[in-house]
Simulated assay, not measured.
Amino acid sequence: MSLPEADTPLYNHPLPSIEEWLQNLGCKQNSEQLHCWFIETANWKAEITLEVEELTVSYLNAGEGNSNLSRSFPYSLSRGDIEAAVFSGP
């Protein structure tokens, strides 16, 4: 399956395309909670959750006192904008 153009809002992507996109970026799907994904890079790790109206990212141990730092992105943003924001890290 090919992905829509990067400037396409995420809400115009079929779910299999979003899942393919996340896999291509190195994310691993939670086998019990299929809407949850995990990624670990050399500098940070995060859980990505596909909510009803937005994509939520929780950077683990990235906040003050090693707390989690969460950000939400509405599906009306383009895939390219979400990718740039999420995968640049906390």
Rank of each mutant, 00 (worst) to 15 (best):
E5H: 14
E53V: 08
G65Q: 03
P90S: 07
E54F: 12
E53H: 08
I39Y: 02
E5K: 14
E20G: 13
T8R: 04
E83T: 15
A85W: 14
L55R: 09
Y59E: 02
G80H: 11
Q23I: 13
V57D: 09
I48Y: 04
N24R: 09
L69H: 05
M1S: 10
G26T: 00
N68I: 01
G80C: 12
N43H: 15
N66L: 07
K45P: 01
L77D: 10
A46D: 01
S67C: 03
P14W: 02
N24S: 09
P14R: 07
G80S: 13
I18W: 13
D7S: 08
C36V: 01
L77C: 12
L10R: 06
S17R: 13
E40N: 09
V57K: 07
H35G: 02
T56Q: 14
T49H: 06
S70V: 04
E47N: 07
I18S: 11
A84Q: 14
T8I: 05
Q33A: 03
H35P: 01
T49Y: 08
P9D: 15
C36P: 01
R71L: 04
F73H: 03
A46V: 00
E47F: 07
P74N: 05
Y59P: 07
S2R: 11
F87W: 05
M1T: 08
E40C: 10
M1K: 13
T8N: 03
S76V: 09
Q33P: 04
K45A: 07
I18H: 11
N66D: 01
G89H: 06
E83Y: 09
A84I: 14
E51F: 10
F38I: 04
S88I: 01
N30L: 01
T41R: 12
